[in-house]
Amino acid sequence: MKNVANATNYLDIDNKELFKIYSKDKDNKEVRNILIEKHLYLVNLLAKKYANKGVEFEDIYQVASLALIYAIDRYDIEKGYEFSSFATPTIIGEIKKYFRDKVWTLRVPRRVQELSKKISEAKVILEQEYKKQPRVEEIAKYIGCTEEDVLEAMEASYGYQPISLDSSSNDDSEDKDITLIDKIGQEESSFGNIEQRDFINKFMENLNELEVKIFKDRFFLDKTQSMIAKELEISQMTVSRLERKIVEKLRKEYEKNL
């Protein structure tokens, strides 16, 4: 009963005081859980930026949630900056890292995996027999399958060893220094792909012009407070204060829509 009472009392304390309590007692799981719950809106908002990009949203949300916990554990309130300013790049960094590590590896059916293995073995045997690279029709005849099946398995096999984006584009252009990554378009820096854009648009209607700019720059363009302050010709402290105000409005709006 004592723990329940403590948890209830903690709910009435603002975030700054909660972080002070947690910084002095890292074993206080009640405070830690409350801090996590209070900032899940940030996880949801940032995870939505990367939805519909080839990875299940649930996986992205889980990665972002773990990053939030990591940020809460590492946050030092004595340094003076807002938690959202610290957590946002941490969460985005972990999401991008997850994409780098997972997205490029293709998953293929077991049937195709097994056929790919047979093709590799057949290539070795036929190359020794014919003293040259075997043709698709020769591989298909040796294995006992169609040429279409061989081509499908050979194409899928590239998924096991993805090509580095830093490798040459291997085209006929004169500039041999062009890599594959140079030919990939950049991510659109708007939030047209966010599933909850209606919620965001409605939320921004309650912000003034200055707050809208700071909101977009901080959460969608990943600009630092100092960069925004320089553009607007105001102090970083003012940007920090306004960001704190925006985040509090966003939290309340998010809770209303739960």
Rank of each mutant, 00 (worst) to 15 (best):
I21T: 10
I21K: 14
I21S: 11
Y22I: 06
Y22P: 02
Y22M: 07
K24V: 07
N28M: 00
E30V: 11
R32L: 07
L35N: 10
L35K: 10
I36C: 01
I36H: 04
E37D: 15
E37I: 15
Y41G: 03
L42R: 02
V43A: 04
N44Q: 03
N44W: 03
L45I: 05
L45A: 05
A47N: 01
K48T: 06
Y50P: 01
Y50L: 00
G54S: 03
V55E: 09
F57R: 01
F57W: 03
E58S: 01
D59R: 01
D59L: 05
I60T: 04
Y61C: 00
Y61F: 03
Q62F: 11
Q62T: 09
A64H: 01
A64W: 01
L68Q: 07
L68E: 06
Y70W: 03
I72M: 11
D73C: 04
R74V: 01
I77A: 03
K79Q: 05
Y81C: 05
F83Y: 11
S84E: 15
S85L: 02
T88N: 07
I91K: 05
I92P: 06
I95P: 04
I95S: 03
I95M: 04
Y98D: 00
F99V: 05
R100Q: 08
R100M: 09
V103F: 14
V103Y: 14
T105E: 12
R110W: 09
R110S: 12
R110G: 06
R111K: 15
R111V: 15
V112Y: 12
Q113S: 06
Q113W: 00
E114V: 13
L115F: 12
S116I: 06
S116P: 10
K118T: 11
K118H: 10
K118P: 10
I119C: 04
S120T: 14
S120Y: 14
E121F: 11
V124W: 14
I125H: 04
L126A: 10
L126D: 12
Q128E: 15
Q128F: 10
Y130S: 12
Q133S: 12
Q133I: 13
P134R: 09
P134G: 08
R135K: 15
R135M: 12
E137L: 13
E137Q: 15
I139H: 09
